[in-house]
């Protein structure tokens, strides 16, 4: 990183796409060309986005590294994200990053790949999905995963499904299964209703030769990791993306500690076996 990781640089919003009632995707361009050229990220990493005067928030990158623009898919939740939702194309924000670990795409090889997302958890996984699609298109067989590939995605209601228009493209390389917690009465949802583990009955994979990328609310991930280990998936091959209060992004402020690991620096994507002793411990 040529830039001091504690000091934000300027980024400009190129365009904004409203995804759902409370979530939008922001395309950013780094203003300084020298910083932009040196900026490299891997799927699963995050940036600290700041609106000076309001504050700073960790936001995962939802685009693939091959793509020109850096996308952030953000739900309105706190002060920073609310202010972000009021901005327009051309407006400037601060950015630091990229930080954290990434999805281990080089570990997939010929394993069956399960990409499991709950709600906004699809955002950092979209980066990995699009990278895989990119690799598949260019037939880079050396690095392209060759096993069965699944996307299991659950949202609250049909209206909350993110990137809905992209799923037809995903189906070219993945088996995509969707579910909603609650079907909207006015919409004619024909798909599955229920929590994400209900999707598991559609999925046939080899647990001993599989790898799982998991991102969603912590409770959902805890339930799902139990389900996976019960099926015989070793915790070494389950990867979870965690959320904690991240303030500095580089492991110096202590806010994101989860047991002995810094979520910002050692994570946010963890091999479950590394954190299994603290996984599910209340208020750790």
């Amino acid at each position: 990183m040529i830039h001091d990781p504690m000091i934000p640089f300027e980024a400009t919003i190129r365009w904004i796409k409203k995804e759902t009632r409370d979530t939008a995707t922001y395309a950013m361009k780094i203003a300084d060309r020298r910083i932009a050229r040196a900026y490299r990220f891997q799927p699963g990493q995050f940036n600290m986005l700041s609106i000076p005067g309001i504050g700073e928030a960790p936001i995962s990158i939802s685009s693939a590294p091959e793509e020109e623009e850096i996308l952030h898919t953000v739900r309105v939740a706190g002060d920073v994200t609310t202010q972000l939702s009021r901005l327009r194309p051309g407006d400037a924000v601060g950015m630091r990053g990229p930080f954290g670990t990434s999805w281990p795409l080089d570990e997939v090889e010929d394993r069956d790949l399960l990409i499991v997302a709950g709600g906004l958890g699809i955002a950092p996984l979209r980066s990995a999905i699009r990278r895989i699609l990119h690799l598949a298109r260019r037939r880079k067989t050396a690095s392209c995963p060759t096993g069965k590939k699944f996307i299991l995605y659950g949202a609250k209601t049909p209206k909350d499904i993110l990137f809905r228009d992209e799923f037809p493209r995903y189906r070219s390389a993945f088996q995509v299964h969707l579910t909603v917690d609650k079907a909207d009465p006015e919409e004619s949802w024909k798909g599955e209703v229920g929590l994400i583990p209900t999707l598991m009955r559609h999925v046939s994979f080899n647990p001993l030769k599989s790898i799982v990328f998991l991102c969603g609310p912590e409770v959902m991930m805890q339930v799902f990791t139990k389900e996976l280990t019960a099926r015989g998936v070793p915790p070494e091959k389950i990867f979870v993306a965690m959320e904690r209060n991240m303030n500095c992004g580089v492991g110096l402020c202590g806010h994101c500690l989860f047991g002995p690991v810094f979520v910002c620096k050692d994570g946010p994507i963890f091999r479950l076996s590394r954190i299994v002793d603290f996984w599910g411990v209340r208020e750790i």
């Binding site: 934000p8 300027e10 000076p52 005067g53 407006d91 400037a92 924000v93």
Partner: peptide
């Protein structure tokens, strides 16, 4: 120092 379109740090 931030205006709508520019941010100086």
């Amino acid at each position: 120092r931030k205006s709508r379109k520019r941010l100086h740090i």
